[in-house]
Amino acid sequence: MKTEPSAHIVIDANDRSSSFSWQKIRPYADLLRSFVLRDWKVRFGQTRLGFLWMILQPLITASLLTLVFGLLVQRGNAPIPYPLFVLSGWMGWTFFSSASLQSVQLIPQYQAMMRKVYFPKAILPLSKLIGLLPEFCIALLMTLIYGAVSGSLSIRALSVPLFFPLLLFFVFGTVAWFSALGGGYRDIQQLAPYTFQMLFFLSPVAYPFGLLGQYLPEWGKVLLYLNPMAGCIDLFRYLLFDGFELHSRVLWSAAVALVLAVSGAHKFAREERKWTEGL
């Protein structure tokens, strides 16, 4: 049998390298995959409908939001049907909010394992990110199909993959932050649901910001776009459909997303060191 060249491992008290390094994660790629598969199997394995839920969930939410908000939001000269409007906002929102909410629990959930065996902790937030991607893709696919059927799809939709990393960066940043904080402070578990409830209403998922914008001064609008979700949703709607405009305020969102990603990785690495030192 072929043996891999035995890797030298050095455990050094002064080693402060980040855990989001390819070198550290690569040998554990299979574990990362196992974590993702395990999450899926536990989530869908015991349901009757199984993976069909990934398709049903966006449908149900879009219908619910349409029922509730559809009446409130004036259609007027809306460029696309309201259900499509909701679906296109919700796909990014749910990716962001489920990944972040679930990552608050990550460290407490894996603590027993961390006490017994080493693995690069960075794969925990990554597993959430990867694990929820298929649901996002399915929702995106449904949006594309619906958009094509209703004739509102723009040619710009082809460039969606180019801007996809922006969303990934943003979600990665919040997942890293929430898992880092959730490990040290259990208060975050209590706080997180309210944060996301508030953020939901501060994101243009169910209504266009134009509705809010007429009551706000310019700095208020910028404030709204400091929530990167706002920028992401606006960007994707602009790319996917005709009839939407893109304001330069979206750049604020992009900047915040990048800052979140970099600082999140940094914060996670620092917290990780604290957890492991105490074990």
Partner: peptide, 10 residues
């Protein structure tokens, strides 16, 4: 599982 405070292991 935990990190040393001093020294090194190879």
């Amino acid at each position: 599982v935990t990190l040393p405070s001093r020294g090194q292991i190879r």
